[in-house]
Design a binder for these strands. Structure first.
Lengths: 191, 191
DNA sequence: CCTACCGATCGGTAGG
DNA sequence: CCTACCGATCGGTAGG
């Protein structure tokens, strides 16, 4: 019971931190802001977390984990390349709609991670990129997709998907999904 | 002569600030960092600029001005909608290749602008967005483009273009231009 | 979880 | 353009 309450309070603080880091930026947000937000004195925050960097680490690595798991499920199926891209679009939207603040921080503030966590983060990201590009290249080899540089197209798609976080407030998930799928699918299509 | 030297030194400081803000983020970059970078004592920086916020303002508004001017030239021609989109892609790439640090700061750090400048910035941005969307809607009405939500497509294209800043180091302008034009053009195409 | 507090760093000024 | 310095704020700790 005590432990369950403590985990819960920690999670409340992490979620509040995600909101705060999203609104003000990691460096501009202070532990004092956070304390006010959760109704504690600044020093009491440290009963639940080790450091400000720890908060950022929990937020960013939590999202990274979700992407890693989602990608593992998608790349291990026998869907067509085009279907896999569609599933990846859905994955990004699902994570965004689940916790908008966290994914925004994951997206915009990861560079402030402390070195050791940053290394881990970059490994997961590199892995994700590798698997994403593999799907693009397979589609190209099968004659389904048409483009010159896999790297450019990958980055453009990732940016497109990461914009969708801004669309979460304005559109239903289905609207975003349909428009993004159609846009990207056309973009990859052979003329 | 004196005046010319002073303007020049101010510009050196602004350019160094753009580099610094790009590398560390506006909030994490200090005037002391900047002073070291240009070989001055921290307080001497203030002989050339009024405040740290002023540096950010000069960088962001400088870029905003370039986009505003570029858009004015493009939208006042009688090019086709598709040609106009192509010209906008070129505009973004030109500005990015001209000063990568500035456009990155413009893109990622504008939210730290002081209120009065922020208002001005948002007006220019809103205006740019309005004219960009008008081109998209005209293309749609003429049956050249196919999509549901102008707003979503606009934002996706803008994000795609803003990724290109990351591609500046790795690709030639022509490669990026060709790949982005082809990607976006396909994305907008009627099936 | 709070009171009390610390050392470090920040943007910026005074005065020359 | 520098020396000297200031008030504010920061992340975080000691001790209860």
């Amino acid at each position: 019971m005590m432990i369950a309450e403590k985990i819960s309070k920690k999670q409340i603080i992490i979620n509040a931190a995600a909101d705060l880091f999203k609104d003000k930026g990691y460096k501009a947000a202070s532990i004092r802001d956070l304390a006010t937000k959760v109704g504690l004195e600044p020093s009491s925050i440290y009963s639940h977390i080790k450091s400000k960097e720890d908060l950022l680490s929990e937020i960013c690595m939590g999202c990274a984990q979700k992407f890693t798991e989602g990608m593992a499920q998608i790349s291990n199926t026998d869907m067509s390349s085009r279907k896999k891209i569609g599933a990846l679009i859905t994955l990004h939207l699902d994570i965004a709609f689940e916790n908008l603040a966290s994914i925004t921080v994951f997206n915009d503030e990861w560079r402030y991670l402390p070195d050791s966590v940053l290394n881990e983060f970059l490994i997961l990201r590199k892995d994700y990129e590798k698997q994403f590009k593999k799907i693009l290249m397979e589609g190209k080899e099968e004659g389904k997709f048409e483009f010159q540089h896999t790297d450019i197209v990958f980055n453009v798609i990732i940016k497109t998907l990461s914009w969708s976080y801004a669309g979460v407030k304005k559109y239903k998930k289905e609207e975003l999904q349909q428009e993004l799928t159609s846009f990207i699918s056309n973009a990859l299509h052979k003329n």
